Amino acid sequence: MCWQQDLIERVIQQVLGNEVSGVSTYNADTIDPFDIGHALGVIAEGINQGDFRASRGKKRKSSCTRGSLIIPVSCLPKTTHYEFTPGNNLNFYPANHRHFDLSISDAEELATVILNGIRNQAIRYTFIKNEPKSHKLTYHLQAVIAYSHCLQVFGNLNHSEPPSSWANGQDLTASEQLETLKHLAQV
């Protein structure tokens, strides 16, 4: 199918952020929005925003909506290079081993692949809303999935005494990461 050029341009602008290198992505095991990898990626991306942190005391607006794409590596065009870059995921340690950066040789080609993948249901999109009525795909649910996984991997998640294997981030200490995760998961 041929896509209109303005739609391709909107994907380049809105989805890829006009970037051609260093586009952050997270490895998810399936195209299921309830996958642990997806939840860890959502939290890793969101934790950098000030209004997510418990210590800021600000509550997110109830109409806050973000989107994410679950793109299997098999869907990426051969001109897209991806590199494992755990050090570039700077503020949510449990997602480090799932972090990759994309380098895009042809942004239009990747935008077309994304549109075709969504149409063919090989790529899933998820809109995550901060609204009580959107019960299935809320930030809270993604945080609960991430929290549950971290609890299994790290054991006790006391932010006053973080697990010794949990690393500090560039801007957030291990304690601040845990406090934010617990705040988002409401535990």
Rank of each mutant, 00 (worst) to 15 (best):
I118S: 02
V113Q: 03
S55L: 10
Y26F: 10
G37N: 08
A95P: 01
S160N: 15
V20G: 00
Q170N: 12
N156K: 13
F127G: 06
S148M: 07
V23N: 00
P132Q: 08
A44M: 05
A54M: 02
W166K: 09
S103A: 13
E45K: 11
K136A: 10
V20P: 00
K78G: 07
Y125A: 13
H149Y: 13
V15I: 10
N18E: 10
I145H: 06
C2L: 10
N89I: 01
A167H: 12
F100G: 01
G87F: 02
N96G: 03
R119V: 11
N91W: 09
L16T: 06
S68A: 15
V153G: 05
D171R: 13
E108W: 01
F100W: 03
V187C: 14
G22H: 03
D51P: 05
L172V: 03
N130C: 08
A44C: 07
Q142I: 02
N18F: 09
N156M: 11
P77L: 04
Q13I: 14
Y93V: 02
K78H: 14
P162I: 01
Y93S: 13
S63R: 11
V187T: 12
H183V: 08
E83S: 10
R98W: 06
I47W: 01
K59H: 15
A39V: 07
Q152V: 04
F154C: 07
G57Q: 04
S175C: 09
A185I: 09
K58Q: 14
F154D: 01
E9P: 00
Y26D: 02
F92I: 06
Q5C: 06
Q14C: 09
L141Y: 11
R124L: 10
E131T: 07
R56W: 13
A174T: 07
L172Y: 07
I128F: 12
L76N: 05
L102V: 00
E176Q: 15
I47R: 05
P163H: 08
G67M: 12
Y139R: 12
A143T: 00
E83N: 08
Q177M: 14
S55N: 12
E131I: 04
I114M: 01
D171S: 14
